[in-house]
Nucleic acid binder design. Structure first.
Length: 813
RNA sequence: GCCGGGGUGGCGGAAUUGGUAGACGCGCCGGAUUCAAAAUCCGGUUCCUUUGCGGGAGUGAGAGUUCGAUUCUCUCCCUCGGCACCA
């Protein structure tokens, strides 16, 4: 008997697929298309288990859909720009491009060794000028349409390395290399007006049934639409400040105002107040990310300025507070300590008055009451509820011209400038006379010089390359300077899915073929991308649509968010030393084993705990499968058609098992995406077939049907071994190109079913009854059971619940 | 802190619409095979109790709804992901 040698079997199958271009696809209007995509990887050089899991998931779906007769696109490429290449450049003294291209070649080799059904002809890399030129082209178009603007924004500045740091490079407020205290610095940067699309991005979520609710909820909360009033407060000696509030009903409870440290009012007040200026400096050293802002100690300083309450005319002090965000709303808030927890905490700390303006009987000095209620201590507005007060105030302020209805979003415009080298150059030229000018379309792409040397001083090499930045103004042709910032790498990952449809098209960003393939039918990637990447890509898609480049509204019809791969309960990482290299496992057990384990160990959404013993088990299963099928083949049975009219009860049972397994595996893959239970069902079928021993014509026909169905169903998971078994079973062509097995409903009809009998919800007996038995008959059989009688005896039967074909519950007291 | 997940045997997990808790696999235990071991095959395996039949408890903790809750509601604990410059 042939032995199972994974390395031979896998090489053989991979060569077949390559020679026959099995997974290269073309537009074909006769076939239903299916676009299956996993988020493309950053080319770090080493494939890790997260990748294996991610691409095996899309792989199984892609191969399954192909067997359903669809024209399946399953592409791969690289998200090639990014910070790690710059770090590697400094460390290894190589250019980021060289390092990146070498990594991509390595990873492609590893992908091929895993046998993934990718259409390699469509491979793309975002660092390729043929790719990013269209991103620059789009940016220029958006610039002309006013969807791009420049404004000041804060960055992390390392004063020793004289460089901008990414958030991840700031550790406990210090630069990761220099250890210097990082400060907030404000510099001009480019923004995309994603907020123009906020409403559509929000509303469309209600019509995306293929997305998990959790992701939709996160995006909804991230966009954070809220309705409130913008109200102007007079501030003598400054002018006026506008605040946004969703709770105008608490306006009479305002006892102070708070502005962000970067607010113009704060800056003016600090000009002749050394104490306040010192406080602002302190604030500039605090981290500006949201998590830090929310957890840090709330601190403030009075500015000495007073605001006039627009309804009472009272003077209330204006404070600077470290927790007010300049980037949200107007950078200033009214504080109502009686009915807002943060304001309350702040008021207690700085001994500011706390007033009750919403009816209630708690101690307002001790706890803020944030629920809606009836207004009190609010002059004419007393007795109104939230809606009434909101409406009257809106009306009043509008009439006075000092307030207006405002829809506010938590979502901020997308800052796309990065002060880094290894990214797509922003196609802008700065002219002293004409200002910021987009690079003319005919001059695109602005190519990133790849042959660079990194020194240790940090900062982008572009800033030291006159050959790159010295240019002329496209408007007045005088000498001008090119932008040396590059794009956020989320830009590239926001449209790559569409470019896979036409990766070599050089007459435009997207060809007509994009509308054949896009939207992606199934998108798969880590949950960590639930908000940023997926929101930016949705935004880009709508922008592309409005440019007439695609004709759909959303890029991803169905979304599957996979969990992380853990080892010993922690995320695999080099620093923890708990990594498992896929390559070693492939060498040892073969790609099929690695693929099988990664699909069997957990359902896709959950985190997956890596287990060496589990891998061993997967390998053992494949060996068992191989031997069982080979044993069946070795008997050289003449397979005759199954005579369904004449089946023994054992044959009926096996037939039931085969078809029930097909039904389960099909729905687990197609609908639930629970690949682990699909595999469990196939293991059960394997066990049933292994135990079965019947050399009659019907017996052989059933075994043949069973093994063949199993080989087909396992093939998306473990395609190499299945191709070998397929051939050994004398089947024509490729298992990858065959049809998925069909369920025969007649095999699923059963005349007897097992039911459980409970007394007061506790299991007391099991009964076998005819599938057609009516309720009273079932009830009678159930009550006749000895062990049921034991618990019913001497008690009154209150009622009997019968769930057909499942259970009987006798309620007694 | 805010938003979104997760918590079930020794371990990974299953239970699809409120209806048998623990499928499948790992590990472990016993047996077969072997000079012996590995590999393989067969059987057992939630805990407590019982010779056995059976009984009791049990899905992070606590409450609630229900004939019946791993599943629904509330409060709490632990843990993971995201928080706008990691990708």
């Amino acid at each position: 008997m042939k032995l199972y040698n994974p390395q031979d079997v896998e090489q053989h199958a991979q060569k077949l697929w390559q020679d026959r271009d099995t997974f290269t696809v073309k537009q074909d209007s006769d076939k239903e298309k299916y676009y299956c995509l996993s988020m493309f990887p950053y080319p770090s050089g080493q494939l890790h288990m997260g990748h294996v899991r991610n691409y095996t998931l899309s792989e199984v779906i892609a191969r399954f859909q192909k067997m359903q007769g669809k024209n399946v696109l399953h592409p791969i490429g690289y998200d090639a720009f990014g910070l790690p290449a710059e770090n590697a450049a400094i460390k290894h003294k190589t250019a980021p491009a060289k390092w990146t291209y070498a990594n991509m070649a390595d990873m492609s080799e590893q992908f091929k060794r895993l046998g993934f059904a990718f259409d390699w002809s469509r491979q793309l890399a975002t660092c390729d000028p043929d790719y990013y030129r269209w991103e620059q082209w789009l940016f220029v178009r958006l610039f002309k349409q006013g969807l791009v603007y420049r404004k000041d924004a804060t960055v992390n500045w390392d004063p020793v390395d004289q460089t901008v740091l990414a958030n991840e490079q700031v550790i406990d407020g210090k630069g990761w290399r220099s250890g210097a205290e990082v400060i907030r610095k404000t510099i001009p940067q480019w923004f995309l007006k994603i907020t123009d699309y906020a409403d559509e991005l929000l509303a469309a979520l209600d019509d995306m049934p293929g997305w998990p609710d959790s992701v939709k909820t996160m995006q909804k909360n991230w966009i954070g639409k809220s309705k409130g009033l913008e109200i102007d407060f007079e501030v003598p000696e400054f002018g006026s400040i506008s605040i946004f509030t969703t709770r105008p009903d608490t306006l009479f409870g305002v006892s102070y105002m708070a502005v962000a440290p970067e607010h113009p009012l704060a800056l003016q007040a600090a000009a002749n107040n050394a104490d306040l200026a010192e406080f602002l400096t302190q604030c500039s050293k605090e981290q500006s990310n949201e998590a830090a802002m929310a957890t840090m100690e709330k601190k403030g300083k009075p500015t000495g300025l007073m605001a006039i309450h627009p309804l009472t005319g009272d003077k209330v002090p204006v404070w600077v507070a470290n927790f007010v965000l300049m980037s949200y709303g107007t950078g200033a808030v009214m504080a109502v300590p009686g009915h807002d927890e943060r304001d309350h905490e702040f008021a207690l700390k700085y001994d500011l008055p706390i007033k009750r303006v919403i009816a209630g009987d708690g101690d307002i000095q001790a706890t803020a009451e944030t629920d809606y209620g009836i207004l009190v201590n609010s002059a004419d507005y007393d007795g109104l509820n939230f809606e009434q007060a909101f409406e009257r105030m809106q009306h009043y302020f509008q009439q006075q011209g000092i307030g207006r209805l405002q829809i506010n979003y938590r979502l901020r415009d997308w800052g796309v400038s990065r002060q880094r080298y290894w990214g797509c150059p922003i196609p802008i030229i700065y002219c002293d006379a004409c200002g910021a000018q987009p690079v003319p379309e005919s001059d695109l792409p602005v190519v990133l010089p790849e042959d660079v040397v990194f020194d240790d001083t940090g900062g982008s090499p572009l800033k030291k390359m006159p050959a790159f930045y010295e240019t002329t103004c496209p408007q007045c042709h005088k000498s001008a300077k090119r932008e040396t910032d590059t794009f956020d790498t989320f830009m590239e990952s926001s449209w790559y899915y569409a470019r896979y449809a036409c990766p070599d098209y050089d007459e435009g960003m997207l060809s007509d073929e994009a509308n054949y393939w896009v939207p992606v039918d199934q998108y798969i990637g880590g949950v960590e991308h639930a908000i940023l990447h997926l929101l930016y890509a949705r935004f880009f898609h709508k922008v592309l649509r409005d440019q007439g480049l695609v004709n759909s509204d959303e890029p991803f019809t169905r979304l599957l968010t996979q969990g992380m791969v853990l080892k010993d309960g922690a995320k695999m990482s080099k620093s923890k030393g708990n990594t498992v290299a896929p390559q070693e496992l492939i060498d040892r057990y073969g790609a099929d084993t690695v693929r099988l384990f990664s699909m069997f160990a957990a359902p896709p959404e959950q985190s997956l705990e890596w287990s060496d013993e589990g891998v061993e088990g997967a390998s053992r299963y494949l060996n068992r499968l191989w031997h069982q099928v080979q044993e069946f083949i070795a008997k050289k049975h003449a397979v005759k058609p199954l005579n369904t009219e004449n089946l023994s009860s054992e044959q009926q049972q096996l037939r039931y098992k085969i078809h029930q397994s097909i039904a389960k595996v099909t729905s687990d893959i197609a609908e639930r995406h629970h690949f682990n239970t699909a595999i469990a069902a196939m293991m059960e079928l394997t066990n049933a077939l292994s135990k079965y021993d019947d050399n009659s014509d019907n017996g052989v026909a059933l075994m043949h049907e069973g093994w063949l169905s199993l080989v087909k169903m396992l093939s998306p998971f473990v395609p190499h071994i299945c191709q070998a078994l397929w051939e050994d079973m004398q089947q024509p062509g490729l298992v990858a190109e065959t049809d998925w097995p069909q369920v025969d409903e007649t095999a699923l009809v059963q005349d007897e079913v097992e039911m459980v009998v409970q007394v007061n919800g506790k299991l007391r007996a099991r009964i076998r009854v005819s599938a057609e038995a009516n309720q009273s008959a079932v009830e009678k059989i159930a009550l006749a059971e000895d062990n049921v009688q034991r618990f019913v005896d001497g008690k009154t039967i209150r009622k009997v619940i019968v769930v057909p074909k499942k259970l009987v519950n006798v309620v007694v007291s």
